[in-house]
Design a protein around this nucleic acid. Structure first.
Length: 850
RNA sequence: GGGUGAUUAGCUCAGUUGGCUAGAGCAUCUCGUUUACACCGAGAGGGUCGGGGGUUCGAGUCCCUCAUCACCCACCA
């Protein structure tokens, strides 16, 4: 019974979190329901601090988990952290660079250990932030993506695919960053617009256009279109080309990939350094000659250009060709798109490499079938069809990465036979002996998405009791940016390994953009200082302010006003509770037998019933913003502004307590800290916790007629207030003719409308109320009344418009015949009402003109 | 080149299957010390729902088209 006078969230939030944690409330447990509800959090990168976007994610997961926990279900929110492979190593390399070092100064083992320590430092930080946000996670199940169980699961999956021939090792062109010296999956390459010089060069008997003269040393053919008459006589012949390092021979081939319109319609073919050319080479059995090294320099095939970077060589070769008269012209204004490393911006080189690939088509096929059958619901649903489109075009997946920070690939190669690979999980060994042969471990690690694709079941220790209980997960909540790399792969691997979908629903959230609508980014410096935000407004306010007015899949700007509004809402809850505590004093017993007495009681009960239904169904459908909005307005407008004010005339402590209890419950998933704090001061159920209390079911019955009566009062009160405010009256008298209803509620009306008094039987001598079904006047002198005349006339014309509109609608035969009966009946009733009002207003105006 | 989403009040955004006079928060204006709350209360102003066409008794909502913005996919020698 002792809430402090002002709402200061900072003073109790961490204590409340401890209280929950120590009570074991975060451990999933059935309480009167045998259902389970499970969310495994997408693990945030262990290398970074939590930003506002991650807080947003945590809230979107915590709200439904708290809701289902209160419904008595065994609700699990499983937290984790992601080693994030290349991402983390790239961040660590930046640190090294500051110290003037490079990753190549260390062995892979040293590097791995150093990054491990680096990541450990940051992990505490982010766990603390999760607590600050009130995320009700089961810390005992915390999982790191390099935990043994995750590694084991990745190895088992790899083995299964190996055995079933879904994994193969092959020499392919892969996207390669010469700065980070690792290959990438297609999806990791970022393309951007560029202006590149387009060189028109002499090439044997042809002229052709190329942006990459330096790759000439790797040319093994020259191609034209099969239908191109200009060049058909050359097809199949070998031609001699004068090069900067002397003449060489290439074959002329015909291939559909050539665009006759582009340049001169002739293309030099460099199979080792162009994806298109690689495809052509496979079709025509062309030799493949690599001319660029992994460090991005030219190799011995480039002759005197050896050792130059690609860019240096390009300029040098162009210059040399110019001198030899082989360069015809340079188009300096050619626009194309260039693939870049998404971390360092280095131009991606297509590089010929031995890598492990996953054959995706069989996996994708099952996923597509499950998605088409809508076995997984998406919020918004459009993401489901987008995912299907993505899966349909999926190519084989390169899962090898030439970095240190990751899970070593469990494959060893025979030192005497490069085609002899064996599967072994003891990857802490570099060299092993088996059957009298020596094997070398593949030095590469898995693409981080390969292991994290198993996240839903690996975290649950598949196969296990937890797995049986919580799989498939109820919900996967994540951002749109990892729909393709992660969500798609979880579905494919889930189906492949467990034979079941990994989750029943997917909620995709949009991004929080900066206030001005631009992308939030550390480098631009327009991120939100969430520490300051939490300090100023409290976690509850941030939770609610951040979900307010957002819909799934849509990005929207950060709006500080919404955080502020949410903080004010917490303050409102706080003061409502303070008032009610004051009224009920120590009479805890009264709340057990709430009685519905006054018309306000019946009205508020109806509002609570509606709110409960709405919040429940909105949460069932992941409509967080709508649920919060309903809650906000019911608590503030209906409960605080109307009900509490009305109840001051005739306080009903038992029912006040009942309302407060249920409103706190409904608000708890959104504002867990303030609601639990209030709950704890009430101590209604001994040491009970709100977090594990039951979700409201309103069983008290409301009398709809009485509820409507209160609405009639509201209408009158609002009209009185409007008149009072508009003509600046102070505590006027409301007179009325004999009406039992008004007589009974005179006190209530007087209080709510701030009237001087409400008196019966006075002569009609003031401003007649036009909205209530009773004859009542605000008593004013004729002069004052005249001031209000224009206002009244405005009202008259508005009402006349309304009558006309309704009449028009009802005279429309088509409307009356085809609209639902109920709607037509409503329209009729409205017309009647409108006409009556118009009549009243008109009478009132006429009386002024006497 | 292909796809998706957005365009609603000064600002940031809601608006579930078409159905009463389109909503909220913030901001603005007027009034108010009514002991739960000035992080408040009461009242008010502000929108031809991006343009144009169509379907329907009825369109912010469905269809077509145009414009602008954002994102995604493919990838140009």
């Amino acid at each position: 019974m002792n809430l402090s006078k002002t709402y200061e969230p900072g003073e109790y939030e961490s204590d409340i979190y401890d209280l929950w944690e120590k009570s074991g409330a975060f451990t999933p447990k059935n309480r009167g329901s045998d259902k389970t509800y499970s969310i495994v959090m997408p693990p945030p990168n262990a290398n970074a601090n939590m930003h506002i976007g991650y807080e947003f994610t945590a809230v979107l997961e915590d709200i439904p988990v708290r809701y289902h926990r209160m419904k008595g279900e065994a609700a699990l929110l499983l937290p984790g952290a992601d080693h994030a492979g290349f991402e983390t190593q790239a961040v660590y390399e930046k640190h090294l660079a500051k110290e003037g070092k490079s990753r190549f100064d260390f062995s892979r083992e040293e590097l791995y250990k150093d990054i491990w320590d680096f990541v450990a430092l940051n992990r505490d930080n982010f766990e603390a932030q999760l607590r600050t946000m009130g995320a009700s996670v089961d810390w005992s199940r915390f999982t790191f993506t390099l935990d043994k169980k995750i590694v084991d699961r990745a190895y088992k999956t790899f083995k299964k695919m190996w055995d079933e021939k879904l994994i193969y090792r092959g020499e392919r062109l892969v996207n390669y960053c010469t700065f980070h010296r690792t290959g990438f999956a297609d999806i990791e390459v970022e393309y951007s617009d560029a202006v590149s010089p387009l060189y028109y060069i002499k090439y044997g008997p042809f002229e052709l256009a190329t942006t990459r003269p330096e790759t000439k040393f790797g040319d093994t053919a020259v191609a034209v279109h099969p239908d191109d008459k200009r060049y058909s006589k050359w097809v199949g012949k070998t031609v001699t080309v004068e090069g900067v390092n002397g003449p060489f021979d290439v074959m002329v081939i015909a291939d559909e990939m050539v665009d006759m319109e582009f340049g001169t319609g002739v293309v030099k073919i460099t199979p080792a350094h162009s994806f298109d050319d690689w495809e052509v080479a496979k079709r025509h059995n062309l030799p493949v000659v690599r001319v660029i090294e992994h460090d991005g320099t030219m190799n011995e095939k480039a002759g005197k250009y050896r050792g130059m970077t690609v860019m240096e060589a390009r300029l040098a070769v162009a210059e040399a060709m110019k001198e030899k008269g082989l360069l015809i012209k340079v188009d300096e204004n050619y626009h194309n798109r260039v693939g870049k490393c998404y971390k360092c911006g280095t131009v991606i080189e297509p590089m010929l490499m031995q890598q492990w690939f996953v054959d995706m088509q069989p996996l994708a096929k099952r996923a597509i079938a499950a998605l088409q059958a809508k076995k997984i619901n998406f919020y918004p649903d459009s993401k489901r069809t987008q995912l299907i489109t993505y899966l349909e075009g999926l190519k084989d997946w390169n899962i090898s990465r030439q970095i240190a920070w990751g899970i070593p690939i469990p494959a060893f190669q025979n030192v005497d036979d490069s085609d002899d690979w064996i599967f072994e999980t003891n990857t802490d060994q570099e060299i092993i002996e088996k059957n009298g042969k020596t094997y070398h471990r593949d030095p590469d690690v898995f693409d981080t998405w390969f292991s994290s694709s198993s996240w839903p079941y690996a975290t649950l220790n598949y196969p296990s009791e937890d797995f049986d209980k919580f799989y498939p997960l109820s919900l996967m909540e994540t951002g749109g940016d990892i729909l393709y790399p992660w969500v798609s792969r979880m579905i494919m691997l889930g189906l492949y390994v467990t034979d079941d979908i990994p989750f029943k629903e997917v909620y995709i959230h949009g991004y929080i953009r900066a206030e001005d609508g631009t992308k939030m980014s550390k480098s631009i410096g327009n991120t939100v200082d969430n520490g300051a935000l939490l300090k100023e407004f409290g976690s509850d306010a941030v939770r609610m302010g951040i979900i307010a007015g957002r819909s799934p899949g849509e990005s929207a700007s950060f709006a500080p006003g919404k955080i502020q509004a949410a903080r004010n809402f917490c303050n409102k809850l706080w003061n409502v509770a303070r008032y009610i505590e004051d009224v009920i004093g120590d009479d805890f017993e009264a709340r057990k037998t709430p009685e519905v007495l006054s018309i306000a009681d019946h009205w508020m009960l109806t509002k609570l019933q509606q709110l409960t239904e709405r919040v429940t169904s909105d949460l069932d459908n992941y409509r967080f913003s709508e649920a919060y909005d309903s809650l906000y307005h019911t608590v503030w407008d209906d409960f605080a502004d109307w009900y509490l004010e009305a109840s001051k005339a005739t306080p009903n402590p038992g029912l006040l307590a009942y309302f407060l209890e249920n409103l706190l419950k409904l608000a708890h998933p959104f504002a867990p800290f303030v609601t639990e704090t209030i709950w704890q001061t009430l101590k209604w159920e001994g040491d009970s916790l709100l977090i594990t209390s039951s979700w409201p079911e309103i069983s008290l019955a409301a009398d709809p007629k009485k509820a409507r009566d209160f609405e009639t009062i509201q209408t009158m009160v609002v009209e009185c207030r409007t008149i009072i405010a508009n003509i600046g009256l102070s505590k006027p008298i409301l007179g009325y003719k004999g009406s039992e209803f008004l007589e009974m509620h005179a006190g209530l009306i007087m209080r709510l409308a701030r009237l001087g008094s409400v008196e019966k039987g006075l002569e009609a001598n003031g401003l007649r109320l036009t909205r209530a079904p009773f004859e009542a006047w605000i008593i004013v002198d004729a002069n004052t009344a005249q001031k209000y005349l224009s206002k009244l006339e405005e009202k008259q014309s508005a009402e006349a418009v309304s009558v006309e509109r309704l009449k028009g609608r009802l005279s429309n035969k088509a409307y009356v015949e085809s609209a639902p009966e109920k709607l037509v009946a409503e329209t009729r009733a409205q017309l009647e009402e409108s006409e009556a009002k118009l009549h009243q207003i008109t009478t009132e105006i006429d009386s002024f003109n006497l």
